[in-house]
Design a protein around this nucleic acid. Structure first.
Length: 424
DNA sequence: TCTGGGGTCCTAGGACCC
DNA sequence: TCTGGGGTCCTAGGACCC
């Protein structure tokens, strides 16, 4: 969960100790509008207004489209030549659906088979992460040119600290938000929505207020009027489980949540979550905008075309397992990390998942080492049931550069220490 | 007819040490 | 000999997010 800090909250200290004419803390949340679909429409403008879903498995379910692309410019492919949802067979979920497709009840994370029954005529496009990453890089670079304090929150979202940016205070941030929107649109023809608020929590919610292509400016005084009527689920960090529990306790809106006292919330949700919920309902969040962060783990996983059995499909499973380990090793090396916790994840045909991991004495990025220890993890699981997913993870990361230094200095010292221990 | 892939953070119990 | 407590690391599971 996205947690604010509670004791010694910087924001609270600032309120008490900052001079009267200090700039107001102004945090923006920027969210690209229907990002994947919008990028696809840049390529295939002929699909504008039609029900389109993006998703599917790795299989070349779009052979027709692939063939067509070889010969024709994307924008000249007739709509009739695009593959339809009804012609798809196999696993996979929808990553994004256009508004026209959502009219049919089709939405993100829905299985493609189910979606095909709801809207068989919808056009199905394969995900093209290379294209989305390219546009992601482009819009983030544009923002960085204008406002350097940006936190990356994934492929289509960022937080930006407007507080000290020239013009960031004008109209509560609206002027700067408009400038960024225009710069992104001029360069990419993509639209985004921006919320500007005293902190990340409120900014994130505010960016949804005027979607698409909208701006929402909010201040602390807007808490009761604009946030308290919203469903608790709108708080970033309250998901389906917490929401259901809140509903059962008779709490449906953020305003109702705010009426409960901290102690009561802590009794029902635990120290940390209870205190955090209380703060969130009162619009309190002092998390800073974080410019850079190191990854904690790197993983690869895959859902099989069909469920596999550990014994009957041993060869196939073994090949996939080895490939996943090699991919993780490559990812580590490419990104410059080593890790010492090797883990696996299995999902059975009934969708139950289990994980196993073990920690090595030293860090590694070696595919064979990862494969060996992932294999040891796998041996600790009974494999009667068929499997639908296998994953490999490396955690407890440090950068390869740090590890290099560590081996030069720390490791020899430890060896000396061990030798001394043995002598005594 | 089910339900992707890549992450983060939290909890909780046990081992082990001081 | 008994009792207790704190800190850290390891492992497994789960909620949540994009």
């Amino acid at each position: 969960m996205a947690r604010g800090c509670r004791p010694g909250c910087i924001e609270n200290q600032d309120l008490m100790s900052t001079p009267l004419n200090a700039p107001l803390r102004r945090i923006a949340h920027l969210d690209m509008d229907a990002f994947y679909a919008s990028v696809e429409l840049l390529r295939y403008p002929q699909l504008k207004g039609l029900p389109v879903v993006i998703g599917g498995g790795r299989r070349a379910q779009n052979d027709d489209l692939q063939a067509a692309q070889d010969e024709r410019a994307p924008h000249s492919i007739p709509v009739a030549d695009f593959p339809r949802l009804k012609d798809y067979s196999g696993r996979g979920v929808i990553t994004t659906a256009t508004y026209a497709a959502r009219q049919f009840g089709v939405g993100s994370a829905m299985g493609l088979m189910k979606a095909a029954r709801l809207c068989p005529q919808a056009i199905l496009l394969p995900v093209d992460f290379a294209a989305y990453r390219h546009y992601s890089r482009t819009f983030k670079d544009i923002i960085l040119d204008i406002a350097p304090l940006m936190e990356d929150r994934g492929i289509d979202e960022v937080y930006i600290d407007f507080t000290q940016v020239p013009g960031g205070q004008r109209e509560g941030g609206r002027v700067l938000a408009r400038l960024i929107q225009k710069a992104i649109y001029d360069a990419t023809a993509l639209t985004c929505s921006v919320g500007v608020a005293p902190n990340k929590l409120l900014a994130k919610m505010a960016s949804e207020f005027n979607k698409p292509n909208g701006i929402a400016i909010v201040f602390e005084d807007d808490l009761e009027g604009r946030f308290w009527p919203l469903a608790c689920r709108k708080i970033n960090g309250i998901g389906p489980k917490a929401d259901e529990k809140l509903q059962q306790l008779g709490i449906h809106t953020i305003g109702e949540l705010a009426q409960k006292d901290v102690g009561w919330l802590i009794d029902h949700f635990g120290q940390k979550t209870g205190a955090w919920m209380f703060d969130a309902a009162h619009g309190i969040d002092c998390r800073p905008v974080v410019l850079e962060s190191e990854p904690v783990s790197i993983s690869r996983e895959t859902t099989f075309e069909r469920d596999l059995h550990a014994v009957r499909d041993r060869a196939e499973l073994g090949a996939i397992f080895t490939r996943l380990c090699e991919q993780v090793a490559q990812d580590l090396q490419r990104k410059g990390y080593v890790g010492k916790t090797i883990g696996i994840k299995l999902r059975f045909d009934d969708f139950k998942s289990v994980t196993r991991d073990l920690t090595l004495p030293d860090h590694t990025f070696d595919a064979a080492t990862i494969r060996h220890h992932a294999g040891l993890c796998l041996k600790r699981i009974a494999l009667q049931q068929k499997l639908r997913l296998l994953g490999v993870r490396v955690g407890s990361l440090m950068t390869a550069a740090e590890h290099h230094l560590w081996r030069q200095h720390e490791a020899p010292l430890q060896q000396v220490q061990t030798a001394m221990d043995l002598e005594t």
